[in-house]
């Protein structure tokens, strides 16, 4: 007998996986990009099932919002020729399929044989508060590093995208 959360899980999992498959299987890169957004949304749904609401919000904002739009822009800017055949396979896709499948088998079997040991403790009442505390407490250093990283990425992206025009 299925309860609601299980039903939701199967639904979200099916949507996420199907969308991910569409991303890699479709031949039109614009379609791929759109299915990528759907995958991100599905993952956000899974986060909610796992009671990580803040993370789901972040996922929607950053991934489904910013990243996906960035990708769509890039697709548009580099469009050339037939958009219907813009996302083809390369010559070693068969080998790639075999390797991916093998890795999948290994991961699933490896995880499947685990007897996970859970820590018997209740979840904190508020995720957001706990996350905020962690960011400014234990994880202050990676937090600052991430800030520097974003700055670096910004500078780098501007430099590289602007291209080889020497400054005057």
């Amino acid at each position: 007998m299925l309860d609601v959360s299980a039903l939701l899980f199967w639904l979200l999992a099916a949507i996420t996986i199907a969308a991910a498959l569409a991303v890699v299987l479709l031949k039109n890169i614009v379609h791929s990009a759109l299915y990528l957004v759907l995958t991100f949304a599905g993952v956000a749904g899974i986060y909610i099932l796992l009671q990580a609401e803040f993370l789901a919000a972040v996922q929607l904002l950053i991934y489904a919002g910013a990243v996906a739009i960035l990708i769509v822009f890039a697709v548009m800017l580099t469009r050339r020729g037939d958009i219907k055949a813009s996302n083809l396979y390369n010559f070693n896709y068969l080998a790639a399929g075999v390797v991916s499948l093998a890795l999948l088998v290994i991961i699933i079997l490896g995880n499947g044989r685990m007897a996970w040991t859970a820590a018997p403790a209740p979840a904190p009442a508020s995720n957001v508060a706990a996350i905020a505390n962690a960011f400014l407490g234990r994880y202050a250093i990676p937090f600052e590093v991430a800030a520097v990283l974003l700055l670096v990425a910004m500078v780098g992206a501007i430099l590289l995208a602007r291209g080889g025009k020497p400054e005057r």
Binding site: S100, V105, I106
Partner: peptide, 23 residues
């Protein structure tokens, strides 16, 4: 592809006996 093939081979080679019948 070489990198991930190597990962798969290492996993098959090393992990299989240790995992005790995973594969």
């Amino acid at each position: 592809l070489v990198i991930f093939t190597a990962v798969v081979i290492i996993a098959l080679w090393m992990a299989a006996p240790v995992l005790g019948g995973v594969i």
